[in-house]
């Protein structure tokens, strides 16, 4: 029977498992969020990876380097610093992507009062947050640790088993470090999106969190003659954590443990802000 001729009837068919329903939000949010412009930006973000891949290729092809007329082979080394630099560059692009896509993640649901419709169903606030966050995690992964892992695989295939065995920790580092940044970027984007309805303003605030944090952090350090102001400089905090993960001796002016604590604190604040807004309705006491 044609759909328009059918009358209402109750549903008695099978149901999907409850644990899988957070992915529904991911799927619908992704299709709503990602259009031509985002896809184009994603593609553009992969261009540096091609450059880094070419670097790896050249480092393993002395004959090609010789054809350029110099002896660069010894200068090109592929190590933890190489992957650290690649991931740092990519996470900068990820930051831009978050500022571009993040504001449209939660705010449409808040603005249009859609929260009661989600939560009057067998669906929790945690599932909602997980579903929305997965959109950013997926997008940012595509331009950060996934190409980094591909580069690692390329380097392994060219350098051989000895190099791979000695540097296997890099594979873990290129996944872990970007995932830490992705998590904090996603949480910031979602918290800002939940509180700021105007998309352009939300994007500006996401960018501002890092710049203002850096500014205030420096000011606190200068005025108070301390280094704890750097704890609100998220770029510096992430850089410290990354340096630890990539085994780099960078003097960021922060203790690694302090940096981890600052990240945990920032994450908790974002989650608190997020859960203040992600609820079926607001109680006015």
């Amino acid at each position: 029977m044609a759909v328009y001729k059918r009358t209402y009837k109750s549903y008695d068919g099978p149901l999907t498992p409850a644990w899988s329903r957070w992915m529904i939000v991911t799927r619908f949010s992704y299709s709503r969020l990602v259009g031509f412009k985002t896809n184009l930006f994603l593609l553009a973000c992969l261009v540096p990876a091609v450059g880094f891949a070419a670097y790896i290729y050249l480092a393993h092809n002395a004959a090609v380097l010789k054809s350029f007329g110099g002896n660069f082979a010894s200068a090109l080394s592929i190590d933890g610093k190489f992957f650290f630099n690649f991931c740092t560059f990519q996470i900068g692009l990820a930051y831009l992507l978050v500022a571009f896509t993040g504001p449209a993640l939660v705010s449409p649901d808040v603005v249009n009062n859609a929260m009661p419709l989600y939560f009057c169903r067998p669906f929790s606030r945690s599932e909602y947050v997980a579903g929305k966050m997965a959109v950013l995690v997926y997008l940012l992964s595509l331009i950060t640790w996934v190409p980094a892992l591909v580069l690692f695989a390329l380097q392994s295939s060219l350098a051989g088993w000895e190099w791979t065995r000695a540097n296997f920790w890099i594979a873990g580092a290129v996944i872990l470090a970007p995932l830490i940044s992705i998590a904090i970027l996603s949480l910031i984007a979602m918290a800002v999106s939940a509180w700021i309805k105007w998309r352009a303003a939300a994007g500006a605030v996401i960018l501002g969190v890092f710049f203002l944090g850096a500014g205030f952090g420096s000011a606190i350090n200068a005025v108070m003659r301390t280094h704890y102001g750097s704890l609100i400089n998220l770029s510096q905090v992430l850089n410290t954590v990354w340096a630890g993960v990539f085994r780099q001796n960078l003097d960021t002016g922060l203790d690694v443990l302090d940096a981890w604590n600052a990240l945990a604190g920032a994450s908790l604040i974002c989650l608190w802000l997020l859960f203040k807004k992600v609820r079926a309705f607001e109680v006015v006491k």
Binding site: F28, D109, V111, N112, N113, P116, L117, R121
Partner: peptide, 29 residues
């Protein structure tokens, strides 16, 4: 099933996509 008092929807979704999403969240394949 709950129909709230105030406007509640997602503005830039078509009705069929919106209703489908709500049905899926309720557990329908």
């Amino acid at each position: 099933g709950y129909m709230p008092e105030n406007d509640a929807f997602i503005a830039n979704l078509s009705a069929v996509t919106f209703i489908r999403m709500m049905a899926e969240i309720s557990g329908l394949p």
